[in-house]
Every structure is written in C-alpha cells, then in structure tokens.
C-alpha cells in the first residue's frame, strides 16, 4: 500500500492536469454566445455613435463625434455652439425616476417577499407563480391596460365618481406619478423574487433565536431579517434600476410622452427622428451611467461584507 500510493497519486495529478487543459475549450460555447450576442451588438452601437447620421436613417461615413456634441451643445444658425442642457435634464429625470422606482420597489418588495417566505411550502409555490404571472403577457398590453384604467373616462375615475367621492375626474395619467407607478408596476417582480430567494433560505430558528434573545420586532427586522435579505435587495435593485432607466413604455403611455425619459429619447432617434448615430450615442451614455451605478453598488456591498 505504501508503495502503491505515490503511484496512484501521481496518476491522479496527471489526469487532473489533462482535465485542466480541456477547461478553456469547454468554455468556448459560452464565450461564443457572449461575443455574438452581447459584445458584438455593443461594438456596432458604439461604432454607430461615432458615424454620421444618414438622412433617411442608417449611418454613413465619415467618423465624427457630432452625436456626442449634439448631446451637450446646440449648433446655432451661425454655426457657433451653445451649451444646451435639455438632454442632461432628461438623463437626470430618468435616473431620479429609476432611483425612486428602486426605493419604492424595496419598500413594497421586502414585506411582500417576507410574507411569501414565511408561508408553508405549498402556499409559497403558488405565490411565486402569482408574482411571475404578469410576465406571461406582453408588458405593452399590460401598460396599455393601465392607461384604460387610469384615464379620465377610465375604470378608476368611473368608480370614484360612482361612489360619489369626486365629481370631476382626477388627473391620474400623464404625470411623474403615473410614470413612477408604471415603472414600479413593470419591474416590482424583479425586486420581489431575489429578496424572496434570499429570505426563503433563512432558517426560521434564527428569528426565534433573536426573539429569544430579547429582540423586539423592529430589532428582529433590522438586525436579522434585513442583513440576511441584503444580497437579494442588492440584486433586486440592479435588476430594477437597469430596465427602469431604459424603459420607454411607461413614460410614453402613462407619461404621455411629454416627460421624456432616456428610453423614449433613444427609441425616437431610431424611429421618427431618424438619427441613428445620436440614438447610439445616447445608448452608450446610458450604458456608462448604468455601469457606473452597478460598479458602485457592487463595491459597496463588497466593502460591507468585509467590514
């Protein structure tokens, strides 16, 4: 046995080395998918943003930074440039609305996820299904339904008039409030599900242990539930923030297109405005914003984990 052992050990090392040599090749399909479907389109968009916009859409040579210039400066009649903050305002508004969407989603999502995670397994399964049901129909249809409900002659105003609370219809649509409502409605499941996933794994004995160790309900939430839900909250925040920033359905349909958000702006450049390179530049700038926020969020969570 003593003689045989080094022999087999050496064999094992050789075999595992062989296996390790294969590993890069095993990763090929994944790399191919990432290059074709993620890096590729991004590079195309990036190059579009540095090309000249075609008159009827599309892009033409030569390379130029005209699109990025347009973002910050207006070209006057005499060809001089003057600073123009209207696009910056749109970006600011978008980030603010997306940020608020994240905050509201956390406030609604945490207790919802906690409620779900504390049910019996059978009920839990059903609740998860319930949360995901909206995904089965198009977001466009669902958002349009909210227009029908919230407009002046809609269900909500009709009901309020019926029970005599109002005589004139409330302006429920076409405001920041309605945009925010639409965003939260659209992306709330992306907050609930990761928090639920984090809380579902939590051993309920931990709650009992905290209760046993003189924690009040508030202390249990702050000292035990929240820290354990945190990975879910961070994941959910990213998942809600990114699509909120890029969303154009809610601002268009529920905001009436008057309060432009980045998503609508970009979408317009590729359709009615036929300025593809400006659309691509806006998208690149949007990506830069989102990436910055994500990197910051990840850093923050890492730092706290090591603290």
């Amino acid at each position: 046995m003593a003689l045989a052992e080094p022999f087999t050990a050496k064999d094992k090392v050789a075999a595992s080395a062989k296996r390790r040599n294969l590993i890069p090749f095993l990763g090929l399909p994944a790399v191919a998918v990432i290059v074709c479907f993620m890096v590729g389109p991004m590079l195309i968009a990036l190059s579009f943003s540095f090309l000249t916009a075609g008159v009827y859409g599309g892009v033409d040579l030569p390379f130029t930074i005209e699109a990025y210039r347009q973002f910050l400066f207006e070209r006057n009649l005499d060809d001089s440039l003057s600073f123009d903050n209207s696009y910056l305002v749109i970006y600011g508004r978008t980030i603010l609305l997306a940020g608020l969407t994240v905050v509201i989603s956390i406030v609604i999502g945490l207790p919802t996820a906690w409620y779900m995670a504390t049910r019996t397994p059978k009920v839990r399964e059903r609740l998860v299904l319930l949360v995901t049901i909206p995904f089965w129909t198009s977001l466009l249809v669902r958002t349009y339904c909210w227009v029908l409900i919230l407009r002046d002659q809609g269900l909500a105003n009709g009901l309020l008039r019926e029970i005599g609370l109002i005589t004139e219809p409330l302006p429920l649509l076409y405001s920041y409030g309605s945009i925010l409502f639409g965003l939260v409605y659209s992306f709330l499941p992306f907050m609930i599900l990761p928090i639920y996933a984090a809380l579902e794994k939590v051993d309920f004995r931990l709650i009992e242990a905290a209760y046993d160790l003189y924690a009040s309900r508030a202390a249990i939430f702050l000292k035990v539930v929240l820290p354990l839900a945190k990975p879910g909250v961070i994941a959910g925040s990213m998942l809600v923030f990114a699509p909120s920033v890029g969303s154009f359905l809610a601002p268009d349909l529920l905001g009436g297109g008057k309060k432009l958000m980045i998503g609508s702006l970009i979408q317009m450049q590729f359709t009615t405005s036929r300025n593809w390179s400006f659309g691509a530049a806006c998208a690149m700038l949007l990506m830069a914003v989102v990436l910055t926020v994500l990197v910051f969020a990840v850093r923050q969570s890492k730092k706290e984990r090591h603290a």
Partner: peptide, 25 residues
C-alpha cells in the same frame, strides 16, 4: 434563553457579536 438543537447562530455576525446579541437587546 434557549440553546437550539441546530445552534441557530446568526450567520451574518461574528462570534463576539453573536454572544453579545442578547445583552445589547
């Protein structure tokens, strides 16, 4: 106070903070 069969130590807190938990509350 209870010593749980599964221990039920708080996984996000270090040993010292675990032990101090009750006193702080």
């Amino acid at each position: 106070n209870t010593v749980f069969q599964s221990y039920a130590l708080f996984p996000h807190l270090d040993v010292l903070t675990n032990v101090a938990f009750g006193l702080e509350r």
